[in-house]
């Protein structure tokens, strides 16, 4: 359980996080979305006590992170930026972290097995691939078997097999009743993993809702795709009914302003044959783009 209330963070002139409030509930995977520079990593650093908020408070299990007696046993985190000494072996990295709160050696071997790094755990981290580094980061996050897991861009650098692995891992953690909070810029990944979304842009809250609701919101006003051998007659009828119609490349029509049902009924009334009638699904990607387009930090010219 993570509760962020009224948190702001200012770096000099720049307000990186602007009065954010949200909570992350146990039992579901909560996605944290936002364009680059939106303040996702900063927010996570504020939750983890690495940066101090300029105002407001971020609590984990009702406490500030700094006040947790055994933080690794309550919160496991992996930051986007590497947080591992490259000269040390993965095993010794995990062992040193475990020793700070009396986590037994056996647990170190356990998490190494969980992330599939048995064969390289004794090698220096500097020789690791990006994907191996991510797996080691996940191992560190799971070390204390925490009830809350915070992962910043966990899919970065993973191959498709690795991405599926982490997706199943996170879903499994949520199913076990854990609080799972992950950021990603890969919308497709979020769509398959997260149930709940927190979307921010320019440090401000844009949306805090279920993935379904988020897509539904963005889909309102999405076009209906319709194909007919008699495009001219149908177009005339649709425009007569107040729709905006445009031609697709394959000869289908994109209709805006009417629902699928209305288009179908109109065609039946005009006795026109339809070959296709499809509500266009907006992907999370599109929903995200349409909702955040005003809050992209660096607009392309």
């Amino acid at each position: 359980m993570i509760e962020v209330s009224g948190v702001s963070k200012r770096y000099g002139e720049k307000l990186a996080v602007d009065d954010l409030s949200f909570s992350v509930q146990p039992g579901v995977v909560t996605g944290f979305l936002g364009p680059n520079g939106a303040g996702k990593s900063t927010t996570m650093r504020l939750i983890l006590g690495l940066d101090a908020p300029s105002s407001g408070a971020a609590l984990v299990n009702g406490k500030r992170y700094q006040d947790l007696q055994a933080p690794l046993r309550e919160v496991g985190a992996m930051l986007e930026a590497r947080a591992i000494h490259t000269g040390r072996s993965g095993y010794n990295h995990l062992l040193a972290l475990a020793q700070t709160q009396g986590i037994p050696r056996g647990r170190v071997d356990e998490v190494i097995n969980m992330v599939g790094l048995e064969s390289v755990a004794r090698k220096r981290v500097g020789s690791f691939s990006l994907g191996m580094g991510q797996r080691l980061g996940v191992a560190a996050a799971l070390l204390g078997d925490p009830a809350t897991v915070i992962l910043d861009e966990p899919a970065n650098g993973l191959d498709p097999e690795g991405i599926r692995w982490i997706r199943n891992l996170l879903k499994g953690l949520a199913a076990d009743g854990k609080t799972v909070f992950l950021s990603s810029h890969l919308m497709s990944e979020m769509e398959q993993t997260a149930e709940h979304l927190i979307v921010i842009g320019k440090g401000r809250m844009i949306a805090d809702m279920s993935v379904e609701a988020f897509v539904a919101q963005a889909s309102s006003g999405a076009p209906v795709r319709v194909r007919t051998p008699d495009s001219v007659a149908l177009t005339a009828a649709l425009i007569g009914a107040g729709a905006r119609v445009s031609a697709e490349q394959d000869g289908a029509l994109a209709v805006q302003g009417l629902t699928t049902e209305q288009v179908g009924e109109l065609a039946a009334a005009e006795r026109l044959v339809l070959h296709e009638l499809t509500p266009v699904q907006v992907s999370l990607e599109d929903a995200f783009m349409s909702i955040t387009k005003d809050s992209v930090e660096y607009q392309q010219a």
Partner: peptide, 18 residues
């Protein structure tokens, strides 16, 4: 300083937030 240059300091401080 080796912890700052590699980012290890963040892991250290997350484990020992005091």
């Amino acid at each position: 300083s080796g912890e700052y240059s590699t980012g290890m300091i963040r892991s250290s401080l997350m484990a020992v937030p005091k």
